[in-house]
Simulated assay, not measured.
Amino acid sequence: MKINSRHYLFILLALIALSGTAQITPQSKAMAVHYIDVGQADASLLEFPCGAILIDAGVANNERIEQLTTYLDAFFERRSDLNKTLDLVIVTHCHVDHNRALQSIANRFTIKNYIDNGLKKGSGKKNQKWMQQEYQSIHSTYSFEAITAGGNASGLTNDSIDPINCNGIDPKIRLLSGSFENRPPGWSNTDFEKNGNNHSIVIKVEYGESSFLFTGDLDFEGIETMLKHYSAFDNPQPNNMVDIDVYQVGHHGAKNGTNEELMNAMTPMHSVISVGQWTNTTSWTASQYGHPHENAINFLLNGTTETRAISVKEWVGLKGESRGSKNVPYDRFEERLIDKSIYATGWDGTIIITVDDHKNYAIDY
């Protein structure tokens, strides 16, 4: 992990607040989420005192597969007590930027449980089919209908979804959404049949008083359907299940992955975008797709409650249609001041958020 002068003081103060728990050990009372810099793709490692979970196994291109496995090698070298074992791997949906490294990880490390959305179509279908076949005995999948059966508004959990139970603290891992078996009301056929992003698994992780949300590439239709079921605005609950502290920004900061309704339901303290760097190349970069988009950034700036220790200016995509599918760079962008607690792997490199069981956070990048 990188430390430089512009955020050294913030990290120092945060580590003091964490009372030395930022380095996770079997004896600590803290967890860490590693938002790994894998380019225009997604891979997040959840580190607990007694185990580890990987949410998505994407990298921007085949050349970066080794970068992800090397990161995991170094992690398991430090955490030798975990015996190169991932207690759970979740692939949110069947796109290659979320599962390109899946086979390499499965061949290199022990995986105890594997969850995906069950679909076998999309750019990542080859990897998803292979994993489902080779790891059939540990594979499970959950639809939105199964997760919310009987009006359940507390999320779904079981020993496969939540295999972590540490001495003295038991994290809670729940699925809030999955693939849709039937087309929800108001969805077009394209929303349901052709938009694989709308079938993303949504994961909520609670650790002590803290909570994290991972929405994959869930699009507006999926967001609206999820909020109608869970949000206190539409389905009053003693606790709003979507109200969280740390938000992994949906769809790499795309304009259709975050909206005002979602931000109002979450009220996140911190937001993290898994996204590539802005370059003038045309393949698998943030500039190809216009990520993060100004629409998402505006919602994040308005809705993220904490501030960055030091503000930064970063490139964001402007309004207009992405031409990424035609392999043409997205050429409408500008620098924006980022003063809220919003981080991005394309801006900051790998980001590690550590928190103890009393909601004391440290952010390292």
Rank of each mutant, 00 (worst) to 15 (best):
I3H: 07
L13M: 12
A17T: 00
S19D: 09
T25W: 06
A30I: 01
A32W: 02
H34T: 05
H34S: 11
V38E: 03
G39D: 07
A52W: 05
I53F: 11
I55Y: 08
D56F: 04
L72R: 00
F75E: 03
R78D: 12
D87L: 00
D87Q: 10
L88T: 03
H95S: 14
H95A: 15
V96F: 01
S104N: 13
A106Y: 13
T110I: 12
G122M: 08
S123C: 06
Q128C: 07
K129E: 15
W130Q: 09
Q133N: 15
Y135A: 07
I138V: 10
T148L: 04
S154A: 11
G155C: 06
N167C: 04
R174V: 15
F180S: 03
R183M: 15
S188Y: 09
N198W: 03
H199V: 05
K204S: 09
Y207M: 06
F212T: 00
F214T: 05
G216C: 11
F233P: 00
N239Y: 08
V242P: 01
V246M: 08
Y247P: 02
Q248S: 15
H251L: 03
T258C: 10
E261Q: 15
L262G: 05
S271E: 02
T281G: 12
T285A: 12
T285W: 10
I297C: 02
N298K: 14
L301F: 02
T307Y: 14
G317E: 01
K326L: 14
N327G: 13
P329N: 12
F333Y: 14
L337P: 00
L337C: 00
L337R: 09
I338G: 01
A344L: 10
T354Y: 06
